[in-house]
Write a protein that binds this DNA or RNA. Structure first.
Length: 371
RNA sequence: GCGUGAUUGGUGAAGUGGUUAACACGGCGGAUUGUGGUUCCGUUAUGCAAGGGUUCGAUCCCCUUAUCGCGCC
């Protein structure tokens, strides 16, 4: 079956929503945060660890799995869930963003699709909306994403308009090619930070009738926070209330709060795991760098937190692991950082239920700082 | 004892009679938003063993001393 979103409550003072997302692999509350497992694996973590931190949906990637091991192999394995031994819901990204982020220079965007080079070995590749959907059908994820174009933050109006129209045509083609009745398909709203383009993109995408809607093209390099928040608030008013809204790629704690306030239900981001591998931890008092010399003799946990890492390890030990390049350091921080964001969404859901989201935000910011 | 070669940051080291002494590692700090698992950026020797001399100017040339290496009695 397709996923079902049930809206249970609107927060009184904001656009925030509390709801339930029903999938073939369980029911989960929203707003939610989805850890990223690009290569059919949330880097360094096992499924037991993900469950222990109350993680629900994870994100995986069409482009990467298409290249390695190849979607036919995942299909042979019985689909992505069986292949990676994960029985929770999986969302697959379409590859649109990867064409943008991994293949910065040599790409040729045509009406038919995108010509670009394999980021691993330089082979010529051609990805189309139909092929992206075919790969995602083979992967058999719970939620597939439309193949979109993700233009740079610096793109001008003319380019953005052209791009939005092309993404709409690609969305239509992808929907037509979509065969998997067990799999839901999301459309993606684009349009940069511009009100009329976001509105247009949202309205036209909704006309195609998807199972949920991504808000894309956000948090691209150079984009200001203000532009990001505008992109969200220019999009969500035109999205149906009975379908989930997914802000693609967003992950900074403050951005998650701002997204929720503007009516977003789902987030994903590499930040918690990437920051972890580079030695950084989210805390309620801001982000810290565990490699800093000041933690050399700090025998306290990162903070008062219910995660496995904080219950068992000190900052001094984690620092030692990081400094020595021991992979357990990044693993322990990944556990803490993902749990931090998931806990944040749990707190946000409570705040929505209690109609005190703005107070929650103010309190959070006063401790967390403004970055 | 005589002869000879060396001595440059925390480490391995480049280098030149003329403004700010390469580069690498390490250290310290920062970045990171639909993944970069090993990434990117910044910073880190007011000084070239010590003292004296030549010179407009010496880390570089000369002398003495110290330390280390090599060869010979």
């Amino acid at each position: 079956m397709k996923i079902k979103y049930e809206l249970l409550k609107n927060e009184k003072n904001t656009q925030a929503r509390y709801g339930i997302l029903k999938t073939n692999h369980g029911e989960f509350e929203t707003p939610m945060f989805m850890p990223v497992g690009t290569l059919a694996n949330v880097k360094t973590l096992t499924r037991e660890e993900l469950k222990a931190m109350n993680s629900a949906v994870i994100l995986s990637n069409t482009y990467h799995l298409w290249l390695r091991p190849g979607s036919e192999i995942v299909k042979k394995a019985g689909g992505l869930h069986k292949f990676m031994n994960y029985d929770g819901p999986i969302l697959t990204d379409s590859g649109g963003f990867q064409v943008f982020s991994l293949v910065k220079n040599k790409k040729d965007i045509t009406e038919e699709g995108v010509h670009f080079k394999n980021h691993l070995n330089g082979d010529k590749l051609f990805l189309t909306p139909e092929l992206s959907i075919k790969v995602q059908n083979d992967l058999d994820s719970d939620i597939a994403m439309s193949f979109d174009e993700c233009p740079p933050a610096s793109a001008d109006y003319e380019y953005l308009k052209t791009s939005v129209d092309r993404t709409l045509r690609w969305a239509k083609r992808g929907k037509k090619a979509h065969k998997n009745e067990q799999q839901s398909l999301f459309g993606i709203v684009q349009g940069g930070p511009l009100e009329d383009l976001r509105k247009y993109s949202a309205i036209e995408t909704v006309k195609l009738d998807f199972d949920g809607y991504g808000i894309g093209g956000v948090a691209n390099d150079g984009e200001s926070k203000d532009d990001m928040y505008k992109a969200i608030e220019y999009s969500t008013p035109y999205l149906p209330i009975d379908k989930p809204r997914y802000l693609m790629g967003v992950g900074d704690p403050i951005d998650i709060i701002e997204g929720v306030i503007r009516g977003v239900d789902m987030f994903d981001c590499v930040l918690p795991t990437r920051l972890a591998r580079h030695g950084n931890a989210f805390t309620r008092h801001g982000k810290i760098n565990l490699k800093n010399a000041k933690y050399k003799e700090d025998f306290e946990p990162i903070e008062n937190c219910d995660c496995y890492t904080c219950k068992n390890y000190t900052k001094a030990y984690i620092r030692h692991l990081l400094v020595c390049n021991e992979s357990l350091g990044g693993r322990l921080l990944s556990i803490h950082n993902i749990r931090f964001l998931i806990k944040l969404t749990e707190d946000l859901r409570e705040a929505i239920k209690n109609d005190n989201l703005l107070e929650f935000k103010e309190d959070f910011l006063s401790k967390y700082g403004q970055n």
